[in-house]
Amino acid sequence: MSKIHMRVYRGNSEGGQLKDYDVEVAEGMVVLDAIHNLQATQTSDLACRWNCKAGKCGSCSAEVNGKPRLMCMTRLNEFAEGETITVMPMKTFPIMKDLATDVSWNYEVNKRIPPFTPREGADWHWEQRDADRAQEFRKCIECFLCQDTCHVLREHDKKTSFAGPRFFARIASLEMHPIDGLDRTELLKDQHGIGLCNITRCCTEVCPESIRITDNAIIPMKERVVDKYYDPLRILWNKMTGK
């Protein structure tokens, strides 16, 4: 057992501040263990979400020393000895209390995405290689760290006109599904504002599931939007062939 120094944000919708704590820690612990330790021994009303503590549910998203991370997958031995560990709630979403934020906006966005709609008469036999791309995006555990770090939401607060990386990946998983018959490019361009993304890749950098959101979801989706709306030759061709 040794001690570490932590600063944890305490507050609610009216405001708050970082508070200092010394926490007992043991070998192999992660930041979430330290937070649990705090709850059990010093401040039982410290609010924080968590479920599986194994990096599979995406509940314990927070900002550890300024970086959006899952607390359950951030080992304490990553930090230098004597380093203060600062834990903040996600900045992009309104705070509820302490480390818990109101992420309901994400669920609203998801509702606005037309669900999986199989093509009529589709052949349900398809190969692994056709499943690969959709499966990558379906690894998403909805921790919303990509939404948190995306500057379009974080700094420019475009929540009314921009869906965010999580939902571009979700749309990509539907658009690249071999059986799905809907076309969501217009939605992507207008309602979900894919044009606001300037592909600065922070979403990919923070993804705990290592989904290559920018390269494999957003850029391919942008290219599909180009196909339909920005490529003059292609638009002409489509008009001529009546597509």
Partner: peptide
């Protein structure tokens, strides 16, 4: 825009790549 991930920006009107010239 942004200078780094989870790093603050100057506040200004932002249109990303949805309007001229970046469109």
């Amino acid at each position: 825009d942004p200078p780094g991930c989870a790093v603050g920006e100057e506040s200004r009107e932002y249109k990303g790549e949805s309007s001229f010239p970046f469109i």
